[in-house]
Design a protein around this nucleic acid. Structure first.
Lengths: 183, 183, 183, 183
DNA sequence: TATGAATGAGAATTCATTCAT
DNA sequence: GATGAATGAATTCTCATTCAT
């Protein structure tokens, strides 16, 4: 699975052949079929495992004492999971636009975006954000974009500092509306 | 090329066969080879054309009177080009992590990220941003993330409102440092 | 036809495509079909023309005053025709072992070997050769072999001197049998 | 490889398709690619094997006690190898004029002509031949020509008798020059 | 006379997959 | 648990040929 994840991430799912997979893993092609029914099932297995791991990464976000800290934790753990599993995320970013592949991946996949978005929105509401729906999308877009930029160049991308900046900017309690009207 | 772009975006480059391309375009498979040496060259041609179109989309960003407005124009035109060519951007988002594909695409491709990032950074510097390098990455990440979220669901994603929010938040002149210290 | 002959000689008949032929001749592929019904017919035409030319090369062999001179003329004209049309002979040497190609070339082709062999045999009989049938094959083999060696390296092969040597050795009247038994 | 050699010899290299090869060998087309990277590599393998076999055929030529016998052995073993491997020689005679095919066949191929020629020349020098360079070419041409004529019609061509005649004529010690001047 | 768009058939090649061992 | 021989289908690509212009 590790070998497969690397190849899928690098050459795409359709661009990776069984021969490549077997070679990278150092086994015969036939052996793959003792463990997985085919390429799709292997992808499936990778997703099952990765989703569980990712859920662990995100597990403790809800225990934070304040929405502010919860948002901070959420952003940090998002970046942590990207750093821990760049190949998986790279693969996901490639595949998520292909409906036929996503469809074969089970229902849970693809829903996490909605879940995370809803979480962010709830937290922003808790923070008194004026337009939490739109701002949640903004935060989510930033997380997603930064994650990808990191994945494209892990050695140089300052993921932490971008994360801190994002938290600084958006995970702060909003001033009450009337404060804005002050001259 | 239009037919190919649609299929590439939907099924991925490797996941689209010559047969599919010919069928979608309503021609014989052989005819494709009269115009392109193969799938790769077709992809190449799509990129050449799209890059030119995109450069037009971004052409007038530098003529804005102030950094504030320039940044606004840049963000808006980024979202405009995504709205105008969602299939191309979807394809690019799928392919940009595959080094062998990107390598065959010419030098210009892949450089635009650096160019845009540098532009943003320069404008933020002009706006007096405290850490323009990091903040530029933040802005760019947000643009990229939002563009992808839009491309994944163009019918429902509130791209404009996210864009406005981003501009509101970040394309504003920064208050001089001592103002922050006020209680 | 000249262009085709060059390509056929260099890449073989089956190894030469219509596209190559059209390119080498500097015309469109379609135009070829205004003049020839197809690749085979083009080959046919090349053979028709070449056979006529070759028959002219050999025409005056029968007018020689003596078998000795006739054989000399025959050998010389054989080498002359090779020198004049190396591409054709190269092509023929490639194709003559392929029954399906030879079959499509008309009856005359392939018979010339028998004709030449019979001529040589008759002349050798005239010269009093002890075993004209075998010796005719020897002479013919030498002509054929030398012709090919010349065709493979026209710049360096001493075709004339090999011809002279062959004439010297074999196109001489044979001494009457009893002379051999002397001393 | 045996099946391929037969087909290559009969229909030419370019004229033999993978399908024909697979059918003749009684395997699927795909299987061929488990063993050879393509038609060219198969040809390559055939040549590698054949060259080794041929070298064995010629191995003992140098141990002959006299140049006369050595030349006899050389001619006989040349004809032996042709008789033993007519398909290979037929194929070689078809291909040797095609530079691109020969180029892909390794350095050894194509050199044997020079080697054999040099051998013959050395032996003829040993026999006191007046112009060994030219006469060696004559002998080699005869061998080559006769071999091809045999290959074109193995059932009827009197290869042995032609060989004997050649040996009789040319593999004899040359009389010292002054003897020729005797009346 | 000449072109180039177009095609269908076939060639070369890759692929996912099976199975006996 | 592991292999490698084997396959059939699909994929990429080439080819000879046609035809409207």
């Amino acid at each position: 699975m590790d070998a497969a994840l690397v190849l899928f991430a690098r050459h795409g799912f359709a661009g990776t052949s069984i021969r490549m997979l077997a070679e990278e893993a150092g086994v015969s092609q036939g052996l793959l079929y003792n463990y997985y029914e085919g390429k799709e099932e292997l992808l499936h297995a990778i997703f099952e495992r990765s989703i569980e791991e990712i859920q662990e990464d995100f597990a403790d976000a809800s225990e934070a004492p304040s929405p502010e800290e919860a948002l901070t934790v959420l952003i940090r753990s998002a970046f942590d999971t990207v750093r821990a599993r760049p190949d998986f995320w790279s693969l996901w970013y490639q595949l998520r636009a292909q409906p036929d592949v996503v469809a074969g991946l089970g229902e849970r996949v693809g829903e996490w975006a909605e879940t995370i978005l809803a979480n962010i929105e709830a937290l922003l509401t808790g923070l008194g954000s004026p337009d939490p729906a739109v701002r949640a999308r903004l935060v989510f877009a930033t997380i997603d974009g930064a994650a990808q930029h990191y994945v494209l160049d892990p050695a140089n991308y300052p993921l932490d500092r971008v994360g801190d900046e994002l938290i600084e900017l958006l995970a702060r309690p909003n001033p009450p509306p009337h404060a804005e009207a002050s001259p």
